[in-house]
């Protein structure tokens, strides 16, 4: 009992079928392109938002004000203690003079301030955290240390960013899952129509003694080719659309705050994700579609 699998035959059958069912193939590719484009655009926006949030997060820090009576030596010890707390990314020491200079900056016109001695303000540490979500916890740990007079932080802003990022992430995942299911359904139905058109041929093949695998392969290749074609077309469109939008955003004055990532460094990953998703949708769609036809 020998099984000869001739993949050249399957591929040429798959190709042939794509052209003989031209309209359905065109529709299927269009669906894959649409789904991938929606998915891709959303993901790229999400990546950009995440990137910007990352920037903002980096600026998130809180300030620990040092007890007035502390000497330089004690302050150095305090800095070491702060650095020892988990979730502390970095600490920057701000001396009394530096604090005063920073305070006076932008207030040069105010004559009252000119006469103030340099040591009116207390020395302080600017502390960056690793995980913005645990900022409050870290801040109270710092506050508990001896020599820390008080903590100054904008927890509301930090929490706002976290909530925003979490919502964006959840929405992205939900949308992508929904879109994946929709495109899978559409591909399965497209190939189901193709198999329906060829149920006679399938019946004849089965009557002649073709194995299920043999009957399935050309359809699987057809699905894979459709997925691949859709992925490549979607990639080119994505590139074009992304560049247009990026140019518009960076060129506009009102949106100058938004930084847009360049497409090229992400191109390979986008292409990989599209090809992978396209192949997956195409293959699983065709397998789903012909399951029923093989039960003879």
């Amino acid at each position: 009992m020998k099984l000869r699998y001739n993949f050249g035959y399957f591929i040429s059958e798959g190709f042939h079928s794509i052209f003989t069912h031209g309209f359905m193939s065109f529709a299927a590719v269009c669906m894959i392109v649409c789904c991938l484009l929606i998915m891709g655009s959303f993901s790229l926006v999400a990546v950009n938002v995440d990137h910007m949030l990352g920037d903002l997060e980096a600026e998130n820090e809180f300030t620990a004000i040092v007890e007035e009576t502390y000497t330089d030596g004690q302050t150095t010890q305090l800095q070491a203690a702060i650095r020892g707390i988990p979730n502390v990314a970095s600490t920057t020491y701000v001396s009394k003079a530096e604090a005063m200079a920073a305070f006076k900056e932008g207030r040069e016109d105010n004559e009252l301030l000119n006469d103030l001695p340099d040591d009116v303000l207390r020395a302080r540490f600017r502390i960056h955290v690793v995980d913005i979500e645990r900022m409050k916890e870290t801040a109270s740990q710092v506050e508990a240390l001896d020599g820390v007079a008080k903590i100054r932080a904008e927890f509301e802003i930090a929490e706002g960013f976290v909530v925003l990022r979490d919502i964006a992430g959840a929405v992205a995942i939900i949308l992508v899952v929904i879109l994946l299911l929709v495109s899978l359904f559409i591909i399965a139905n497209t190939i189901k129509l193709a198999t329906f058109n060829r149920r006679e041929e399938i019946a004849i093949m089965k009557m002649c003694g073709a194995t299920n695998g043999f009957v399935r392969w050309p359809f699987v290749f057809e699905g894979m080719l459709l997925g691949l074609a859709g992925a490549l077309v979607a990639f080119l469109f994505q590139w074009g659309v992304y560049s247009l939008v990026a140019n518009a955003v960076t060129g506009s004055d009102t949106m100058s705050l938004i930084t847009v990532l360049a497409f090229r460094p992400m191109a390979l990953r986008v292409l990989g994700a599209f090809v992978g998703t396209g192949l997956l949708i195409g293959t699983s769609g065709s397998v789903l579609a012909i399951r029923k036809f093989l039960q003879v």
């Binding site: 020998k2 000869r4 001739n6 041929e201 004849i204 073709a210 043999f214």
Partner: peptide, 10 residues
């Protein structure tokens, strides 16, 4: 030919 290819003939 179709009937022969269906069972893997070259």
């Amino acid at each position: 030919i179709f009937a022969m290819r269906a069972i893997g003939a070259s």
